[in-house]
Structures are given as structure tokens and as C-alpha cells.
Computed example of a mutant assay.
Amino acid sequence: MPALTDKALEYIDNMNTSSSAAHPMDESRAKEMFKFLKDLDNPISANDIRSHGAQNGWDSGFTKKMAEWADKVASGGRVVVKHPGYFSENMQKELRSKL
């Protein structure tokens, strides 16, 4: 798996993955990150999310939602970010460094 994908999944690992619904701020952070990765021409795949979630004990509902959002963004679909700004410049910088 590319270093960029590993780092993105690491950010998701730091969320509350044991709940079926992502916290609203985590949801926004994830959606912004998925958009950012797509803008870098390196979208994260739903399969990578499902695989990583299964290997790391994420709640199946949480994994399903993350995979759906990632797939929607990667395919050019629209997702609503209700709380923008939680995907920090620091996170963006770290992800860019993995290219």
C-alpha cells in the first residue's frame, strides 16, 4: 500500500472507529481528507478502507460509511462537509510529504 494511503488510514485509525456512526467532526475531517486526496490524484479506495477496517477491528457500520464516502468522492460525487476546517494544514502537509 502506498505511504500516502497508509498515512490517510492512520488518520482514520485515530478516530472513534468502535462506533457505527462517525463523530460529526470526524465525518467532516474524513470527507475533507478524501477530497484532498482526490485533488492530489491519489484517491483512497473503498477496498483499502474495508480491508484496513477489517484488519484493525473497526465497527462494520463505521467502515461501511467511510468506504462509501471515499468511493463517492473518488468517483466525482458530492459529499456535504457539515463542519469544515477539521482537516488541518498540518495533516495536508504530512500527506503531501508522502507523495
Score class of each variant (00 low, 15 high):
residue 76 G to Y: 06
residue 92 Q to E: 05
residue 58 W to N: 12
residue 84 P to M: 00
residue 35 K to C: 01
residue 75 S to K: 15
residue 5 T to D: 01
residue 79 V to R: 10
residue 75 S to C: 04
residue 50 R to D: 00
residue 72 K to G: 08
residue 8 A to S: 10
residue 6 D to Y: 15
residue 37 L to Q: 04
residue 10 E to W: 14
residue 48 D to V: 05
residue 49 I to R: 14
residue 8 A to P: 12
residue 88 S to I: 00
residue 1 M to C: 02
residue 38 K to T: 09
residue 51 S to L: 08
residue 60 S to G: 09
residue 46 A to D: 13
residue 16 N to V: 01
residue 43 P to L: 02
residue 5 T to L: 00
residue 67 A to H: 11
residue 32 E to A: 08
residue 51 S to D: 09
residue 7 K to V: 01
residue 45 S to C: 08
residue 32 E to M: 12
residue 93 K to M: 01
residue 24 P to G: 05
residue 50 R to E: 03
residue 37 L to M: 11
residue 9 L to Y: 08
residue 24 P to L: 00
residue 84 P to A: 02
residue 43 P to A: 03
residue 65 K to F: 15
residue 30 A to W: 11
residue 94 E to A: 06
residue 54 A to L: 07
residue 75 S to D: 14
residue 17 T to Q: 09
residue 5 T to W: 03
residue 97 S to M: 04
residue 37 L to H: 06
residue 27 E to P: 13
residue 23 H to C: 09
residue 70 A to W: 05
residue 56 N to E: 07
residue 65 K to T: 14
residue 46 A to Y: 09
residue 62 F to H: 15
residue 42 N to Q: 14
residue 64 K to T: 10
residue 69 W to I: 04
residue 34 F to M: 09
residue 1 M to H: 07
residue 82 K to D: 02
residue 70 A to I: 03
residue 90 N to E: 04
residue 66 M to D: 01
residue 84 P to Q: 01
residue 70 A to C: 03
residue 35 K to Y: 09
residue 95 L to H: 07
residue 66 M to L: 10
residue 56 N to T: 09
residue 93 K to R: 07
residue 31 K to N: 05
residue 85 G to K: 08
residue 44 I to N: 12
residue 79 V to A: 13
residue 17 T to G: 04
residue 80 V to H: 04
residue 6 D to C: 00
residue 18 S to M: 05
residue 26 D to M: 02
residue 77 G to E: 14
residue 87 F to K: 06
residue 69 W to F: 03
residue 92 Q to M: 04
residue 40 L to F: 15
residue 25 M to V: 08
residue 85 G to L: 02
residue 46 A to T: 08
residue 89 E to Q: 07
residue 69 W to E: 08
residue 94 E to N: 04
residue 47 N to A: 11
residue 36 F to A: 07
residue 7 K to G: 05
residue 4 L to R: 12
residue 92 Q to C: 04
residue 16 N to C: 01
residue 52 H to M: 05
residue 54 A to F: 15
residue 77 G to V: 13
residue 10 E to F: 15
residue 71 D to I: 00
residue 77 G to A: 09
residue 62 F to S: 10
residue 43 P to T: 00
residue 42 N to H: 13
residue 76 G to N: 02
residue 38 K to M: 03
residue 44 I to K: 10
residue 14 N to I: 00
residue 74 A to K: 09
residue 53 G to P: 13
residue 12 I to H: 13
residue 40 L to M: 14
residue 85 G to F: 00
residue 25 M to P: 03
residue 23 H to T: 04
residue 84 P to C: 01
residue 70 A to L: 02
residue 14 N to P: 06
residue 57 G to N: 15
residue 31 K to F: 02
residue 35 K to M: 05
residue 69 W to L: 06
residue 67 A to R: 12
residue 86 Y to I: 03
residue 42 N to K: 12
residue 50 R to W: 10
residue 55 Q to A: 15
residue 41 D to S: 14
residue 22 A to H: 15
residue 79 V to W: 11
residue 9 L to E: 00
residue 31 K to M: 11
residue 24 P to V: 00
residue 95 L to A: 05
residue 4 L to S: 08
residue 64 K to I: 02
residue 92 Q to S: 01
residue 61 G to I: 01
residue 1 M to Y: 05
residue 8 A to E: 05
residue 61 G to N: 06
residue 77 G to Q: 13
residue 66 M to H: 07
residue 14 N to W: 12
residue 30 A to I: 13
residue 11 Y to D: 12
residue 52 H to Y: 15
residue 93 K to Q: 02
residue 3 A to C: 06
residue 98 K to C: 05
residue 72 K to Y: 06
residue 48 D to L: 11
residue 86 Y to S: 04
residue 13 D to H: 14
residue 74 A to S: 14
